[in-house]
Computed example of a mutant assay.
Amino acid sequence: MLEVKNISGGYANIPVLKDVSFQVANGELVGLIGLNGAGKSTTIKEIIGLLTPYQGQIFIDGQSLQGDVESYRKKIGFIPETPILYEELTLKEHLEVVALAYDLEWDQAFSSVEKLLKIFRLDEKLEWFPVNFSKGMKQKVMIIAAFMVNPSLLIVDEPFLGLDPVAIQDLTDLLAQEKAKGTSILMSTHVLDSAEKMCDRFVILHHGKVLADGNIDQLRQDFGQASASLNDIYLTLTQKEVS
């Protein structure tokens, strides 16, 4: 379970988040929604420990980053918007590095991702270097690495960018399986049609504050649009920003 409590923070004296609070329960997929600059990326960086909040607390399964850095970070699987790979390492070596970082026994860790390698059609590319990968293939490597660590909290930032329709469906199925296992999932995305179908609940950030928090029916009530889609609600928010 992820608990974000009254977080304020940002970058080197540039405040972005203002008293942000929300939760992601075990087995729940929550969509983090907002316009560009609303604070989504900053929120994610605060959670994974790349930024330190000015104030407030963040807990994963009751564990804080300040209490035990190593234990806290090992609870997180992160799929970033932009794939980050080392050009001098093969796909297999990337997975070995992840196993080493998370203190995973290699043979057991590799057996756990063999199925994923086949699903994403990378099982015959273990000796390939990133220079040979398309953007979509690089994104698949990040997905496999995140699932490999068997996280308590999975953070997914714009996961569908660069993926073909088959891979998008594969990832959607995997996220559903993770939910069934009890994994907490926080997903930031602008693909709102997919998010509306996948997410149990939504946290809408606006100017660094939580503007709304609830399922689609609750958001419709908050925005006064009885039958609106998530995309309609987002457009309403955009129009208010422009006006």
Rank of each mutant, 00 (worst) to 15 (best):
A226D: 14
R201P: 14
Q108V: 14
I185H: 02
K140Y: 08
V242N: 11
S64P: 02
M1H: 13
L50Q: 13
E28K: 07
I168A: 10
D193K: 14
F59E: 06
I60D: 11
T183K: 09
Q177K: 15
Q139P: 12
L186E: 06
F202R: 04
A146F: 03
M187I: 15
Y102M: 01
D173I: 15
E81V: 05
E81D: 13
L91Q: 01
T236P: 04
G224D: 07
I233D: 00
L219D: 04
L117S: 13
I60T: 12
E158W: 11
I14Y: 12
D68C: 03
D222C: 06
K179A: 01
M148W: 04
S64T: 14
D107F: 05
I58G: 01
L235V: 15
E28S: 07
L116F: 13
Q55Y: 09
F110I: 11
P165L: 07
I47M: 06
L230T: 07
Y11M: 09
I84M: 11
D19H: 09
I216P: 01
H206A: 03
S227C: 02
I14L: 13
H206Y: 08
S152F: 00
F133M: 06
G62W: 06
E105W: 05
P53R: 02
V4A: 00
E158R: 10
D157V: 12
N6C: 10
Q57D: 13
N215P: 06
H94E: 00
T236R: 14
G9V: 03
I48D: 05
T183Q: 06
G77F: 06
L174M: 13
T189C: 10
D200N: 15
L186N: 08
F202M: 02
F133L: 09
S243N: 14
D157C: 12
S194Y: 15
L51N: 04
V16Q: 10
P15N: 01
S227F: 10
D217N: 10
I47H: 07
M137L: 08
K115G: 08
S112D: 13
D213W: 07
E127P: 02
L116I: 09
G208R: 06
L51I: 10
T236K: 14
K18G: 02
